[in-house]
Design a protein around this nucleic acid. Structure first.
Length: 356
DNA sequence: AAGAGCAACCGTCCACAAAA
DNA sequence: TTTTGTGGACGGTTGCTCTT
């Protein structure tokens, strides 16, 4: 009974505040002094209110960015704010009430290009596998920071894919000099016992031209699309096709770089023009963590990149373009984003019972 | 009004460590 | 020895802003 009374008292206070906000005509970007008795929604009130109003909301199978926008729109309505025509990239997104929102299906919370702000609130919204909001949790930056055990920043480079006139394009005529010096003229086609994830050897490393000839047959192939939040698995299907065309009888992927280690080949499937690269820049001269071949160390820029572009029509992924380049030449064909150049994110694992 | 540029945002997997 | 948890990679699309 006592708990129920308290619950009701908080909810009543929250409703009083949202009425005030609604009357005030303020937007989510207008500043409110923290703790303002008539306009500031304390975390407790915020959590209760959003939980009551958002739980059960059906989000369907929207693309994740669209999903996020739908949720923000709903939050504006619940809090008594007018819905902006677009959500500006302010830090935080809800400036007046000083909070950010994260709509999460997974427990891997990721904060990009920003430190955790200790006084900011973080509104974490749990979405079930059926795409229904099940719980809303409001925590301060302090609390989030305590869940961050490492402080490690994960980085990402990006480049732009610009389609040309050719359906298949061999960007680099030759391998890098370094790689060329270890390769033999008559490399064996992959034997049925070799794994695509094995370390490369001088005798089995195919020339970039041979790889090009073998892989260009993939253009025009299609396979079913697994859905808008299953990009990773979609890439796996292409990876399988690539292994098959190269002559490997078994497909294997250990999630490491590069995808087809045995050929020093990285495979990418693009359905949008932004190419995301990992921790390393393709033209990096850093040494790869694999055994040297004939005494020669392999560098990141020696790796070959197979970029496939696809269109998704009626639930099918159809490969329309193919590019093959060395890491060294990568940015000569695909311009690197000049803005931030390197993006980094902090990843915070949420405990399994975080939302309980 | 349309397009280009960009980075923000969210998703998934796997090796290894720790616990059972 | 098996199971569970954690850290840190990889994956890639879309909305916002600025320019034309």
């Amino acid at each position: 009974m006592r708990i129920e009374n308290q619950h009701n008292a908080i909810l009543e206070n929250a409703q009083r505040l949202t009425k005030n906000i609604s009357k005030s005509g303020l937007s989510i970007y207008d500043e409110i002094p923290i703790g303002d008795p008539d306009l500031w929604i304390p975390s407790q009130e915020l959590e209760l209110l959003l939980n009551e109003e958002l739980s059960g909301l059906e989000l369907g199978s929207l693309p994740i960015r669209t999903r996020s926008k739908v949720v923000k729109t709903k939050i504006c309505e619940v809090l008594g704010y007018p819905v902006p025509s677009s959500f500006k990239k302010t830090k935080p997104r809800f400036l007046g009430q000083n909070f950010d929102t994260y709509t999460q299906k997974s427990n891997n919370l990721q904060i990009w290009n920003e430190e955790i702000s200790s006084s900011r609130r973080y509104v974490l919204i749990r979405v079930s596998s059926e795409n229904i909001i099940t719980k809303v949790k409001v925590v301060t930056g302090d609390m989030l920071a305590s869940l961050d055990n490492t402080g490690t920043l994960t980085q990402k480079y990006q480049a732009r894919l610009i389609l040309g006139n050719e359906v298949s394009e061999l960007v680099s005529e030759n391998n890098t000099q370094n790689l060329d010096s270890v390769m033999v003229a008559e490399a064996k086609t992959p034997y049925y016992t070799t794994n695509p994830t094995d370390y490369p050897t001088a005798g089995t490393l195919l020339s970039i031209e041979t790889i090009f000839e073998k892989l260009k047959a993939i253009v025009g192939k299609s396979f079913p699309d697994l859905g808008s939040d299953q990009e990773r698995n979609r890439g796996a299907e292409l990876h399988r096709l690539v292994c098959q065309h190269l002559g490997y009888s078994n497909y294997k992927d250990d999630g490491r770089f590069p995808d087809v280690k045995h050929q020093l080949l990285e495979v990418k499937l693009q359905t949008s023009p932004t190419i995301d690269l990992g921790l390393f820049s393709p033209d990096s001269k850093d040494i790869l963590d694999i055994p040297a071949i004939n005494g020669r160390q392999i560098r990141h820029c020696d790796v070959r990149y197979a970029i496939f572009f696809a269109e998704i029509i009626e639930g099918m992924v159809r490969i329309t373009h193919f590019f093959l380049t060395t890491g060294e030449d990568f940015f000569k064909r695909f311009p690197q984003f000049q803005g931030k150049v390197l993006n980094s994110k902090l990843q915070i694992p949420l405990k399994k019972d975080f939302f309980d």
